[in-house]
Design a protein around this nucleic acid. Sequence first.
RNA 1: GGGGCGUUAGUGAAGCGGUUAUCACGUCACUCUUUCACAGUGAAGGCCACGGGUUCAAAUCCCGUACGCCCUACCA
Length: 500
Amino acid sequence: MSNSTHPPVRTRIAPSPTGLPHVGTMRNALYSWLLARRHGGQFLFRLEDTDRDRYDARSEAVLYEAFRWLGLDYDEGPDIGGPYGPYVQSQRLPLYREAADQLIANGHAYPCFCSRERITEVRELRQKANIHPHGYDRHCRDLSAEERERMLTAGTPHIVRFAIPTEGQTTFRDEVRGDITYNNRELDDHVLLKSDGFPTYHLAHTVDDHHMRITDVIRSEEWLPSTPRHVLQYRALGWQEPRYIHPPLIMGRDPQSGKVSKLSKRHGSVHVGEYQDQGFLPEALANFIALLGWSPGGDREVMSREEMTALFATEGVNGSPSVFDPEKLSWMNGVYIRALSVEELTDRSLPFMAAAGVLPEAPTTDQIAYLRQVLSLEHERLKTLGEIPHATAFFFGELPEYDSAAVTKWLTKPHSGAALDALLRQFGAVPEWTSALLDAAVTAAGEELGVKRGEVIHPTRVSSTGRTVGPSLFDTLELLGRERVLARITHARRNLVPAS
RNA sequence: GGGGCGUUAGUGAAGCGGUUAUCACGUCACUCUUUCACAGUGAAGGCCACGGGUUCAAAUCCCGUACGCCCUACCA
């Protein structure tokens, strides 16, 4: 809990609009959101659009949508403003320039005039010769003041590099793993400002997190190796560094090689939008990804957002990479779907029904009421919303789509014709179209034919639904209604059962 | 090559010096249902990566090794 001697917890997520929102980004966002909410602090959204080569305007809107969908509301952000804006890095250029100038003024940074060609050449050379660190050779770090001034006034294109101390060590604390120490001599002078005047991540995040009063930086483990650079920058600037929390990477298993690596396209779906499209519930996805790197301790797994908020603590974040298991996600999504009321399930299924063309975009109230009855039968066997159209299609329209394997298996036996005839007789005589009476009618049909109940129950299902799987048969028949069931069985009798 | 981090059943975790090493997913079996799923019961699956310490006692603490992953851009 925060108390009066500590500033309020302020966390942030800082995605770059270079593609679709990755589950790893959203996991980190969730942790940041959880930490802020847990302590009554603020959660910020900041757009890191400093890479103008990879900028993708389309991804910005998708990003906001992903946050809305997952219920990660932020207190300050590009689209809602806030006291420390703007929240878009490309609009904060003077701030980075100012920090870079300050760093140059006190000797912690310097302009570098080396061409890109020379830089890559040097890097390759040093790599080949195994000179450490491999990167930049600090050529411009030793330029005389006069030389530097001459180049600057001549307008020579340049970048600004941070001057890493040549000796000593840098120790910082990662809340997940404890103190981590790096030897400064293993770090090369990284770029702070690019030649286009835009900052690199290293500078931008430091400046922004400071100005935006961020207290807790939660970002993936891949940032661990550059954290000493950031810490060195904070210290050189005379700023208080935030707490760093590096949750583990989310890994995927390569279906071919079986090897694990950072979750990417090759492993399947990696963008939250894909999960949304497949009919995963945001609350289920959030619960699932929260567990990839965090545990409240004990056996707790299925947790509501409120429970997670109450339980979240950085002590529960672990340091070992976790493999994303789509099967467990499916199971968990099923748990959440079953927890929905039929009304809610119906509402949420509508977009999927429309997309699949099973129902119109704007269904009538009768259609919705009917769907609700259908879903009450289908409810507990669903894993995703996306499978609803296919699972329920046979409830709509006159004739179902007949699955050929099912037809072959149950409607092409020597007695299939007789079975359907008996069924038609029994069903035709049912006084009231209820599941109990239909159940009895099937039994009667079996007795009439002198066969086991199973021999007629399967043909009944296949002829009236087109398939072998589905909800309880008699409930299904009742809901389908007398007219359609009789019409379907008649159709099957005439067109699917081979003439003997 | 260098640096850092990590290592508990196939997967995700619990465990914080004394447990028959726990839970969930997955797998298999049975029950239920003459379908599928759900649910329930049960089973298989671990020398807690390996080797050394410390300790009466180690999955738990320390050191080393191996392996894996990440970083090593004017990308984030």
